[in-house]
Every structure is written in structure tokens, then in C-alpha cells.
Design a protein around this nucleic acid. Sequence first.
DNA 1: GGGGCGAATGTAAACGTTTTCATAAAGAAA
DNA 2: TTTCTTTATGAAAACGTTTACATTCGCCCC
Lengths: 347, 347
Amino acid sequence: MVTIKDVAREAKVSVATVSRALNGSSNVTPPTRVRIERTAARLRYVPLGAARSLVTRRTQAVGALLPDLYGEFFSELIRGIDLAARARGLHLLVSSTHGDADETAAALHALQGRVDGLLIMSPHVDGGFLRKHLAGSVPAVLMDAALHDRRCASVSIDNYGGARAMTGHLLACGHRKLAFIQGPEPNHDARERRRGFEETVAATRGTTSRLLQGDYSEESGHRAGRALLSGKDRPDAVFAANDMMAIGCLSAFNEAGVRVPEEIALAGFDDIPIARYMHPPLTTVRVQISELGHVALERLMIRMQAPDTPEPGVTTLACEVVVRASCGSGTEASGSVKTRQAPHTNN
Amino acid sequence: MVTIKDVAREAKVSVATVSRALNGSSNVTPPTRVRIERTAARLRYVPLGAARSLVTRRTQAVGALLPDLYGEFFSELIRGIDLAARARGLHLLVSSTHGDADETAAALHALQGRVDGLLIMSPHVDGGFLRKHLAGSVPAVLMDAALHDRRCASVSIDNYGGARAMTGHLLACGHRKLAFIQGPEPNHDARERRRGFEETVAATRGTTSRLLQGDYSEESGHRAGRALLSGKDRPDAVFAANDMMAIGCLSAFNEAGVRVPEEIALAGFDDIPIARYMHPPLTTVRVQISELGHVALERLMIRMQAPDTPEPGVTTLACEVVVRASCGSGTEASGSVKTRQAPHTNN
DNA sequence: GGGGCGAATGTAAACGTTTTCATAAAGAAA
DNA sequence: TTTCTTTATGAAAACGTTTACATTCGCCCC
């Protein structure tokens, strides 16, 4: 392996000068600098990250702890984080946890000491969990976290507002018998979306509603769709807690020859890129998924640079109802309604 | 920050013993071990990765350099890599390059010295590029690389065979006027898929074919679909070089009220999870995308453990035609044909 | 009871880099 | 010239960990 010493010897300078020349900064004579740069390039010298980190106390890396890596939601999220990290010159360490709280704690532990900051999305992680397992050793930002805990930074989507807006839209379209395919129970966002749906329905006279269990996968949406068709009291609109389930549900309807939106309306949540390419194009709640990653990373940067600044609380990203054909909206061909301005930070 | 010295002092042993106790291995008396473990847990000691890496010459991390992070193909690929890496106790550093060869080289450079191995997928990277910019400092495995270069390890999909098989299937369905929506020119896999299509068509009498340019995005597929409909000589089957474009194309057909497969057949490539949930479900070439990541990581592990072993050449992963409704296959409702056994390593 | 041996623990030297401090050289002010 | 300041460079000390080697201790065997 070629080290800084080799470069120093070849270029006939000390290691200190090599370090200075290569890190751009302080006083090195132009001729020495180019000589060193040439030598380094010739020897193919690459500074060892570990050694550098050890002395600078910086890894130039952030970790992203995610619950799963399945589907377009996460590819969009990772994309948003990656782009923002790249712009800041940071490396991105991704880690997924499929298991329970213990496994999540283990993953969190493994990530510490390797990164300068942590982006966390996990149903098991809230402020208390973080304080217990992180102990302030690394700044962290929660994404879509369960608890709006003032003491830890977090960036969330306005799941509740989005679900309210979408439910309101379905009602406005004239649908009265609604069904909701909910996401996995432990997920905070799944609960919020359901709450938005239920409260809106409860506040409107003359409506009936029904809940089906799902787990955010297409397959569970497909199952739910079949269950709805086989039941005796078919709803006139189905609101799925995410697009993947809506897509699975749509496919079940298509298989059964039930036309959407003529016979049954359908809406999703997330606005994953594929949603608009479905047939019919899917009415959904737009969440700027990549923006969530982007904003979370920016927040993390702030905390990394000034770790002792007062905790900045929760940032909420607005959602937006995107009306496409699948909800049977007669009045407007396509349009959108925002739940509120974004991003909005609540201290 | 709490270091190994703090733990040693608290537990009244030397740092060496702490290190031994925490790393599981050699002779430590059970009572001392538990005392050290307790102390470490109490102090919330986390070993600093950088220091550990510096002395062990291992980062316990692999890097994945990917061309982009958009769409389900990459989320599946990352998922496959992540799962395999997790199983091996390795961390995963992801990095994407959107730019040209220079940017790719820079990303490659930034990744060196931070990882024990590299997984690379990039249209700009071939064996020569690798030798020039990597210089054997880190073992690397190419995924779906342009050049089947014996001197560097690579895992590829049988793009050519898959395209041949699919084209053959479309012909077997009775379609004679074919169109192919090709992927971005610089991509090796895009070229291979086109080659498979063209050669199969050329070998069959009485067929006509037409090529349209795409870039693997839904949007480009949508554009291509519209172009096909507006043209005077409408094909009876369209083969898109990936599923995303097929989905965009399908959406264009749907918008125009052109029925698939009755009026025009459609096929894709990749079998992303969503493909089967389209309407009609998409006939496509199944590529075990996550398996590609998985196999690539396993290959990398081998090279990491024995760097001086002779280069093992190219591993090819078979593709499989998955027949669903979109191709208008009258005879069989659903089925599949493999191009060959997988995985198959060619030394 | 002494010699040898193995197990448990301690000591200290690496690992490659940055950075502080010291030094040398070169110019500016006198 | 002399002295002071500035600038470029070098020497060496950190950074936190692992690990080769040294040491101590207790035990068994003769």
C-alpha cells in the first residue's frame, strides 16, 4: 500500500508538507505543490480514510437507518438523501433493519463510531429509544417518527393532513361508502393516515367506512382488493394508505373486470413515480419523498455543525392531493390541493 | 467521548484485556469478561471504527457505485446487496454518479481508502478504466459491465439471451411487425438487449422491425408509445428494453384508447415488482435484480478474502421470459422459459 | 518442593494521517 | 548591517485501537 510517507520520500519533502499540499489549504509553494500532486498521482496515492478520520474526528459519512428497502418509496428516499449528501461532500452508509426493536438497536450500535450523523426511519425508534441507545454520541434526525418529541430533531410528512385532504376529496366526489386499506400497525405514518381518514369520515354525516389491514406491499393491497369485491357491501371508493397497496388493489379490480373509477373509485398515498402511469392514472397524495430525505439531511448537517444548539423540534412537509382519473372526479380533470406550506418547522 | 481507556480504568484492567473481552476471542476469564462488558455498556462505549480500521486494515464496508438511484431496478439492486452484506456483517456505502467518466473516476477515488471492496455498475467503467483508476488497491466486481474482460471479475445478466427469448416469444405469438424501444446508447445492457432483438428479427423471414430511442425512464417510454401510435405503420407488438419504459408506453396506449394486447402487444424487461400489477399484467423478461446484487457481493467477498486468486472472469445470470397478458399470447395463460442455467461462471 | 508449563493479563509498538510547534529562510524595516 | 516579521518546511505528538511480546501467577508433575 502506498502511504503519505512514500509520496513524501519521492517528492523529497516531509509528510506534513504532503498533507498540506493535498488538502489544499495552508502555505505551500506552487512548485512544491505541483511536484507533490504529480508524485501522488504517479504513485496512485489514496489517503486512508481511517487514519484521516482518527485524527480529524470526522468520518465525512452519514448513516441512514431504514426499515426496509423495498419499493419505490425507499429508492426515492435514498435518492433524495444521496443527492443532498453528495452536494455536501458526504458519504452515505445505508443500513436496513427488518426485525424488531432489538435488531434496530444493534444496527444503531453498529453504525455509531462510523458516521458523523444519523438519519433514522424506523417504527421502533422514538426520542426515548434514541436517548437510550445513542446517548448523544452522534447527532441524529428522525424521519417520519412516531413521537413529536421536542428534544430530538425530526422531519415528518403531514400524513394526517394528507389523509384528511384525500378523504375530503373522495367525499366531495360524491362517494359515501368508503373503504380504507391501512398500513402496518406499528408504523407511525400508517396510524396517522388512518386517523386522518377516520376523523374525516366521522365528521361527515351519511357516510359508512370500513377498514382493511395491509402491510404496504402490493400483495397485501391485492388481497384487500379481492376481499372488498367478495364482500357483500361493496364500497364506492377505496383509499389505500400507500400507492403500492393501491396498485395491488387496482390489479385485483382489473382482474375481476371491475372498472375503475366507473364502478369503484381508488386513491393512494405517496405519489411514487409509477402512480401516474397506471391505468387509470392514480389519484394520490403527493409526498415529496426525495425532498423528505433532502430536508432531513440538511437538518442533520445543521446539527452536525452545531451539536449544542437547542433542539429544533419537528419539521413538517406538506402533502398535496393529486387528482387523476382513478378517483372518478367528474368536475376537475386534474389538479392538486396543498395541505399547507412546506417545509414548516415547529419549534 | 468515551474510549477504551475509560472502560479499562473503570473495570480495573488494561486496554488489551478490554479489547480481547469485547472482541470475543482469546483467553479472558469469565468474571473479568462480564465485568468489562457491564462497564462498557454502562459507559455506553462504542469502539471508534476509524481507529479499529487503521490497525486491522479492514473497514468492514463495501462500496456500491451506481449510475443512478431512480426507479425500482435500483431499489431492488440495493436491497440485494444490502441483504447479502448484512448477512456477512459488512456495511454498505452507496454512491451514485450522474455524470460522465471523469465524475465516475472522482467518485471511485473518493470511495477508495474507505472500503474493503467495490461493486460497480456504470456505463463508463470497464476493465481498462478500473485498472487505471483503481490500480488494484481495492478488489472490485463489475455488475453488468460493458466488457467481458477476463482480468476483472464481473457479474452480468444475460441481456442478449433474454432479448432473444422475448423476441422469439413475440414472434411465436404471431406478431410480425415489431417495434423496439431501446435504452440509453452508452449502456452495455441496453446495447445487448437491442442486439438480441435485432438478430432474432433478422433471422426470421417476413418480419419488419423498427427502433425507437428511449432512456429507461417511464417518460421516454410514454413518448415512444405516442410516437408509435401517431406513425402510419403501427406495429403489432412493442418490446421495450426495460419495464419502466414499457409502463410509460402502456400508459400512452391507454390514454389513446388503444387496447393491449388486443390491438397491440407489449413486453418489457427486468420484471420489476410492479410489472405484474399493471393492467394488463406485463409480459417481461425476469431478471433477478436483487440476485444480481447478491451474487456480485458474494463474488466480491471471495476476492476480498483471497485477492491474489486468479481472476474468475464473468458470471452470467440467466433471464427468464415471464408470460403474462400484455403480449397477447393466446396459447399459454402464463408461464416462463429460462435462457439457461443460473448462475453460470465462465472462466 | 522445585521446575516447567499454560492461562490470564499487562506493556508498548504499531497503523497513516493531521496538526502544533519549532526552525529555517527570506524579506522588510531600521 | 541588524532585527523583526512573514512564510515555507520539518519534527514529532497526538488520535483509539489491536496485537505481538513480556510478565505474572497458579498448577501439575516429578
